[in-house]
Write a protein that binds this DNA or RNA. Structure first.
Lengths: 207, 207
DNA sequence: GCTTTGAGTGTACGAACGTTCACTCATTTG
DNA sequence: CAAATGAGTGAACGTTCGTACACTCAAAGC
């Protein structure tokens, strides 16, 4: 019991983050009230201000936290299991596993990306742009892509990220129905293959 | 002045729809209050109930209305201008023109699709699914697609619709900055070509 | 051990919320 | 022309909202 003081504060902070994540599921941050969060946590409304100075800064903290989950997923995708013959199979597999494991974080990103408070929307968009740039860098490391322009890489990774965001949304929607999940994953695999093959062919036919 | 009575009612109804569309821009339907809408329209809160029995049914009316705009766009895409050499060019052109013209409707769909009240979300998802099925039927009419399975068509049209929804979101985001709009359109054209070529190649290599 | 600190409390406020109800009064109807 | 209709009014209700302020009382620091 040496660090009890800051430890307890951190515990309450976590409880607030979790409560907010839980409560705005099914609506949005913009429809959430400070009092609801406080009641859910079990503290008095004014105590909220000891941790965040507004719901918006709470939202920004949730963005940070959610993208920690998302980046953990990207890390897993990157060092894809060599047991998988196909990078597409392994990537979609990692995606669907992470999305289900960190359901709340991915749902938060998907929802607040378009409907959150302006600052939250902006922050999420920025993070996703960074992901696109990272993906473009990854793609550039592939054999045979050295002839591509950076613009082509950008366009391709934008398309892939868009498709994967949509896939994540559909996985969330199918959550708990294994056959629906499998269907979404199968669709995502096919789409990824179409895109990759198309990108290669398109390049070699226009360079 | 023969139809003044119902005419006036319709006018107020329109004013409510417009006010709601305007007010929930930048947040969401779930963060909208009946009183805000009434104030914006210039009627007393209780008068709202003469036209809708809840904000949710207002939301459903806005979904209907927004998809009238969207379907008008699809109609334009379908009878694509023969002056355009490329169907991709003409489709993206029609898309960006309609999205800008009916900015509010497309923004509404994009936003409430993930963040609206459950019934609204569900309704939008249903409408988008119908669009996907229509697109699949259109694609089936293309020469050379007769060997495709209906599942392949479904997967492809899902991918295309996803990419176009994302494009619409980016056009909305770039609204008012012509160079940004042009960039989004150019990206969309490239992506559509990658997808179409990839789908063709993928099919012919696995049938 | 005495003092300081700060997470959490409790009360209180004015504002906005959804909904109720009884109403007005111009238009429509018969 | 009298009666019925129905869009819009206005006051009132019980809630919930964000926030201000003065407070408690363990843990942390000296």
């Amino acid at each position: 019991m040496t660090v009890t003081r800051i430890e307890q504060k951190e515990r309450t902070r976590r409880a607030i983050l979790d409560a907010a994540l839980r409560l705005c599921e099914g609506s949005s941050l913009v429809a959430l009230s400070l009092r609801q969060v406080a009641k859910e946590v079990g503290i008095v409304p004014t105590a909220f201000y000891r941790h965040f100075d507004s719901l918006e800064s709470l939202g920004l903290a949730l963005v940070d936290e959610s993208f920690v989950s998302l980046r953990a997923m990207l890390r897993d995708v990157r060092r894809s299991d060599p047991a998988f013959a196909d990078i597409v199979d392994s990537s979609v597999d990692v995606l669907s596993r992470h999305v289900k494991e960190e359901h709340d974080h991915f749902a938060f990103i998907a929802r607040e990306r378009t409907a959150g408070p302006p600052a939250v929307r902006h922050s999420i968009r920025h993070e996703i742009e960074l992901c696109e740039r990272e993906l473009a860098a990854d793609l550039a490391r592939f054999p045979g892509t050295d002839v591509w322009s950076s613009e082509d890489l950008r366009v391709l990774s934008n398309l892939i990220v868009t498709a994967m965001v949509a896939t994540a949304e559909q996985i969330l929607l199918a959550a708990g129905r294994p056959e629906a999940e499998a269907r979404v994953a199968q669709t995502a695999r096919t789409q990824l293959r179409m895109v990759l093959i198309g990108a290669l062919r398109w390049r070699s036919s226009t360079d």
